[in-house]
Amino acid sequence: MELTTVWFVLIAVLWTGYFVLEGFDFGVGILLPFLGRTEADRRTIVRTIGPVWDGNEVWLLVAGGATFAAFPEWYATLFSGFYLPLFLILLALIVRGVALEYRSKSDSTRGWDRAFFWGSLGPALLWGVAFANIVRGVPLDAAHEFTGTLLTLLNPFALLGGVATLLLFTLHGAIFLALRTTGELRRGATRIARTLAPIVLLVVVAFLIASDGGKPVWWAAVVVAAAGLAGALAATLRGRDGWAFASSALAVVAFTAALFTGLWPNVLPALDPANSLTVTNAASTPYTLTVMTWVAAIFTPVVLAYQAWTYWVFRRRLTGTPTGPQNPGPSALTPVNEG
Rank of each mutant, 00 (worst) to 15 (best):
M1H: 08
V6P: 07
V13A: 11
F19T: 05
L21F: 12
I30P: 06
D41T: 02
R42A: 13
T44V: 13
V46D: 05
R47W: 14
R47M: 14
N56D: 06
N56L: 00
F82I: 01
L84R: 04
A92P: 00
R96H: 03
R103Y: 12
R103I: 03
S104H: 15
L121D: 11
G122L: 15
G122N: 15
N133Y: 04
P139Y: 05
P139T: 02
E145V: 14
F146K: 02
T149E: 02
L151Q: 13
P156M: 09
F157T: 15
L159H: 08
G162Y: 00
T165I: 00
L166I: 01
L179G: 01
E184P: 00
A189Q: 05
I199A: 12
F207T: 03
G214W: 09
G214Q: 11
K215H: 10
A225T: 13
A227N: 00
G228R: 09
L229I: 12
A230H: 04
G242V: 12
V253F: 12
W264Q: 08
W264M: 06
V267C: 08
L268D: 02
A270I: 00
Y287A: 13
T288L: 15
L289C: 10
T290Q: 10
V291G: 00
T293S: 15
V295E: 11
V302G: 12
A308L: 11
W312H: 14
F314A: 06
R315D: 14
R315H: 15
R317L: 01
T321L: 14
P322Q: 06
T323F: 12
Q326L: 15
P330T: 10
S331L: 06
S331E: 14
N337T: 11
